[in-house]
């Protein structure tokens, strides 16, 4: 191929590598919608088969389950040690919770076993947790920058939330909490958003 033929072939190749009009129109529409919705996490755009293969999804799910398990194990380990009370008290507790809550029966029994705990009065209680929007998980700081991903809705025990960087009342260890977990392009969790913040302590 002579230099002239090379130049001609390069020009022809460049011309043939244009984006098909149908694709361009669809993509422009999607991007415009995303532009208007900036500030809101991008919904996962539909990818073709192969872009996010089942192995990646399974790996992401496995990583999520392991993280939840590790969080639960950590919380349970703490709850069985003598330092448990101190650790629980050290957690950030909303002022309203401190003012309004009596010790739970289990805690009272642990301190004074012979005293019969009084039944707790039913009263409106503050929400267990009150974050709005996505909160970065602590491990996200060490991960590559988020580019694209997907949101997975899960039900987590409230006790697992501190491992995701979400503060909870120490009394709310058994509450199942629905949350959206934002997974990055590598399947690892970047942020968490609580779906139902109106659940109260029982």
């Amino acid at each position: 191929m002579t230099p002239d033929e090379y130049q001609q072939a390069v020009r022809d190749l460049a011309r043939s590598a244009a984006m098909p009009e149908g694709v361009a129109a669809r993509m422009e529409g999607e991007l415009q919608r995303a532009f208007e919705g900036q500030g809101v996490p991008m919904p996962a755009r539909p990818r073709r088969a192969g872009s996010l293969d089942p192995a990646t999804v399974l790996a992401a799910a496995a990583a999520l389950i392991l993280a939840i398990g590790a969080g639960l194990w950590h919380v349970r380990q703490r709850s069985t040690t003598p330092n448990d009370v101190t650790a629980s008290v050290a957690l950030p507790v909303p002022t309203a919770t401190v003012a309004g809550l009596k010790p739970r029966p289990a805690e009272s029994a642990a301190v004074t076993p012979s005293v019969k705990p009084r039944p707790a009065k039913r009263r409106p209680l503050p929400p267990v947790i009150q974050p709005a929007g996505f909160v970065p998980v602590p491990t996200a700081a060490r991960l590559p920058q988020f580019e694209s991903g997907l949101i997975v809705r899960v039900a987590l025990p409230a006790a697992a939330l501190p491992s995701y960087g979400v503060d909870i009342s120490p009394a709310a260890t058994d509450q199942p909490i629905e949350a959206d977990v934002l997974l990055g392009q590598d399947g690892l969790a970047r942020a968490i958003r609580l779906v139902n913040t109106s659940r109260s302590q029982q």
């Binding site: 190749l13 590598a17 984006m19 694709v23 361009a24 993509m27 422009e28 999607e30 991007l31 872009s51």
Partner: peptide, 24 residues
């Protein structure tokens, strides 16, 4: 769009991947 798509297509050789790259 065509500048971006062309680079992506000629680097990856796959139109579907080039579309993903362009959108990204």
């Amino acid at each position: 769009r065509n500048d971006v798509y062309r680079v992506a297509l000629l680097m990856t050789g796959r139109p579907a991947t080039a579309e993903d790259v362009t959108q990204d």
